[in-house]
Write a protein that binds this DNA or RNA. Structure first.
Length: 431
RNA sequence: GGAGGAGUCGCAUAGUGGCCAUUGCAACGGCUUGGAAAGCCGUGACCCGAAAGGGUCUCGUGGGUUCGAGUCCCACCUCCUCCGCCA
């Protein structure tokens, strides 16, 4: 959500942002409705002031005895009349708000000026490529073949039990998941030791109340059909722990000296993949349920760009620890998504597809989410500010397991374990 | 699932229909100072206004009763206690 005052004063910027982000919102309509709303509110508040003035006459005198109250009827009639007028105006105000609020929620965050302008993902900018793509002296298998041969992944029985887009991870694969978790937690701890960049480990709830699920601002962007909804309990399943993590501080005033607040959360994520029929239908690259380690930061406004770079640097550190070849992408305006002002993806080399596939994403959402969720801090001068929120993938575990399997496969059909994981899982090869 | 109790500005706390919601502590800012302490002043949201200023809202949330609601009524949310069930 954007600040209404900002929209009033910078309507051109807002329109430009809508255009850049390929979002159609009638900004002029917003301005018009806002004007109507303020006019009506002023009228209602003036009437209310009059009503309050009369009510106060009924108060007992400072010296007077007893419970006070009115004796003369005419003034009561007058107050009743004003009250009636206000009542009559209420439906009109409600009508305006019902039209205005959805439009406000549809407005995207303003992208930073240095974000590449583009229509869609084809205009994203490759910032750098790191690591060597593996060259196999044999016919390489895809991860599904490896998964079947080594009894690591069973999507057939998952289909029987849960349907398509699910999988059983078996044998060494779950152990590798735990190793990845431990690697991330260790790096989070080491960062603290080295530079005081503390990340607090969290396991959040993965079920959210509606207003909290909406708070992170994705429902208007894609389609709320993407999230699983438990009608009986009016709750949504989290598509990413970003949702419960950002909502964690909703309606709070944070202490400025506690900022930045950094978290690294582990959770299962649930996605309907409603808009991706026919895409990645086989295997476990795109599934309804997967585990993910996600970093989330609440920062002061002036620090968010720096914190965003920190998130990206940690993601790259993790990738280098695993020794996987990857590229860093600067996401263009048309592909940013509604809440982000700036976003970098990491794509990891997937040999079987002979291309890079997205495994990480880190966004600076500035105050867009904080405004919806009312997350604030008071600065030195006593001024209230909305915090900036940032998020970044540490590991999306299913996908990174795929990347390890394919990139580390050997001629004899076995899979080497990246060195950084060996001490956590206790084996060096899967065969 | 059943039965009770509670939610007031960061913490604590007063307030059971009538001035502008008490008081203490803490934090932050300002005044003061050579610097500090103490002291004093201030600390939410929104609207109108160039400003000075004025107004509306805010006692978990939303409705209702009333000229007037922290206070009365209804619904919901959250937390606590006990019973039942349970990893």
């Amino acid at each position: 959500m954007l600040d209404v005052n900002f929209i009033r004063e910078n309507s051109n910027k807002v329109k430009e942002a809508c255009e850049k982000k390929q979002t159609k919102v009638d900004v002029d309509k917003i301005l018009e409705l806002d004007k109507q709303k303020r006019k009506l509110m002023t009228e209602m508040e003036n009437l209310k002031a009059e009503q309050n003035k009369i009510s106060r006459l009924g108060s007992p005198k400072p010296t007077g005895e007893g419970g006070g109250g009115f004796k003369n009827e005419p003034i009561i009639e007058q107050a009743k009349e004003i009250k009636g007028k206000i009542k009559e105006m209420e439906p009109e105000l409600e009508r305006i708000e019902n039209e205005l609020n959805p439009l406000l929620l549809q407005l995207p965050n303003i992208p930073f000026d240095d974000v590449p302008v583009g229509k869609n993902e084809s205009e994203n900018v490759i910032m750098r490529q790191v690591g060597k793509k593996p060259k196999f002296s044999f016919t390489a298998k895809d991860y599904m073949q490896l998964g079947k041969d080594l009894d690591l992944i069973d999507t057939e029985r998952a289909g029987k039990v849960a349907g398509s887009r699910f999988g059983y991870l078996k044998n060494e694969l779950p152990l590798l998941e735990f190793a990845l978790i431990n690697l991330v937690m260790d790096i989070a701890r080491n960062l603290l030791a080295q530079s005081g960049e503390k990340f607090v480990p969290v396991i959040p709830p993965v079920m959210l109340k509606e207003e909290m699920a909406r708070g992170t601002g994705y429902f208007e962007a894609t389609d709320e059909k993407e999230a699983y909804y438990l009608a009986e309990d009016k709750m949504f399943l989290a598509g990413t722990s970003e949702q419960p993590m950002v909502a964690m501080h909703a309606n709070e005033v944070l202490n400025e000296k506690d900022l930045p607040k950094r978290y690294v959360a582990f959770s299962t994520c649930f996605r309907r993949e409603a808009g991706s029929y026919g895409k990645d239908t086989k295997g476990i690259l795109r599934v309804h349920q997967f585990d993910k380690l996600e970093m989330v930061i609440f920062s002061k406004q002036e620090d968010s760009k720096k914190e965003h770079q920190l998130l990206l640097s940690i993601e790259e550190k993790l990738m280098k620890a695993l020794g996987l070849p990857y590229q860093v992408i600067n996401i263009c305006t048309g592909d940013l998504g509604r809440p982000a002002a700036c976003k970098y993806d990491i794509e990891t080399w997937l040999p079987s597809e002979n291309k890079y596939r997205e495994t990480h994403s880190t966004s600076n959402c500035t105050d867009f989410q904080a405004r919806r969720l009312n997350i604030r801090y008071k600065d030195k001068s006593g001024k209230m500010n909305f915090a900036h929120t940032l998020n970044g993938t540490a590991f999306a575990i299913g996908r990174i397991l795929i990347m390890i399997m394919e990139n580390y496969q050997q001629k004899d059909g076995s899979i080497r374990v990246p060195k950084a994981l060996q001490k956590y899982c206790g084996f060096k090869v899967i065969k």
